[in-house]
């Protein structure tokens, strides 16, 4: 508008000093356009979802922005996911930075990784340039754990607090500190340590020894398959958190009872994809 107005005055007065000013403003518009385009070029974004993502539960996804350019730093870059935005004020050339974004998936099973939007107002806030970052990654979304009665599943051998095991649980002492994987309750986050180390850390508690348990999917409580799987996810996480070995059976397919993170994910993965293969 300003350029048009001064341009109009320049043409009508023939004043070369006004022409100079208009030329500078036009030059500025051109250079700002190019600079804005450059700012988004050579930038790649990787999303690192947590190890456990549950249907309908909000979790924190790590977004890593990498500036592959040789000289030019990335300025005022924003990675957005719906109404959420992670701002990267200055990303040096040939370097990367990380931020966290809250994400929520609806429905269990394989989901394509969230489509992120890279945008920037740089260099001037007149236009916002953006590009959509498609990804071929898939994320397995586990069934949302649904509270279910556990009277029949009580471990008869163990009285609460009787003997401690080195396995992970939620009722013992702090056993060790590990990285946040997305499924742990917020009360278990060690905020002080997280702040000091720049990434979320959770307290892992010890547990007591328990009798192994095999869950048969069809026998799980619930009015329909989805409820059964949600109860199953709850039982898997609840039991494993208390240190009790859990297995899974569906007809001839049997996953023997075990504990540990890897085993937990295997069970949840099976529940997530159940009926979708």
């Amino acid at each position: 508008m300003l350029t048009l107005l001064i341009g109009f005055a320049a043409v009508n007065t023939g004043n070369n000093l006004l022409y100079l000013l208009v030329s500078a403003l036009l030059g500025f518009m051109a250079v700002s356009g190019v600079l804005g385009k450059w700012n988004l070029s050579g930038i790649s974004v990787n999303c690192h979802p947590p190890a456990e993502v549950y249907d309908g539960l909000t979790t924190l996804m790590k977004v890593e922005l990498f500036n592959r350019r040789r000289w030019l730093p990335g300025i005022l870059l924003e990675v957005g996911y719906y109404d959420q935005k992670a701002l990267f004020p200055i990303v040096d050339a040939k370097s990367s930075q990380q931020r966290l974004l809250e994400i929520t998936f609806e429905g269990r099973g394989q989901h394509p990784a969230p489509t992120l939007r890279l945008s920037s107002r740089f260099p001037i806030n007149f236009f916002i340039r953006h590009k959509t970052l498609e990804t071929e990654k898939f994320i397995t979304v586990f069934p949302r754990p649904q509270l279910c009665p556990m009277d029949q599943l009580q471990d008869p051998n163990i009285q609460f607090g009787n003997s401690l095991s080195l396995r992970k649980g939620q009722d013992g002492d702090i056993n060790r500190i590990s990285n946040y994987r997305g499924g742990e309750p917020l009360k278990r986050i060690h905020w002080k340590l997280s702040a000091r180390q720049g990434q979320l850390k959770v307290k892992e508690l010890s547990t007591t020894a328990h009798t192994p348990l095999i869950l048969e999917i069809n026998q799980l409580p619930g009015a329909n398959l989805e409820q059964k799987l949600q109860h199953g996810a709850y039982l898997v996480t609840r039991m494993l958190r208390s240190g009790r070995p859990v297995g899974l059976q569906n007809g001839t397919m049997v996953i023997p009872p075990d504990t540990g993170l890897h085993h937990k994910q295997r069970l949840l993965h099976t529940l997530a994809l159940y009926g979708q293969d």
Binding site: V11, G14, N15, S23, A24, G27, A30
Partner: peptide
Amino acid sequence: VAIVLPTGSLVLMALLFFILPRTSHPLW
């Protein structure tokens, strides 16, 4: 990075100044 803007603008100014349309008898 910001300094690229004025520098580039001034370089383009030097070019655009000579090619912007003019009239032989300005009204004002």
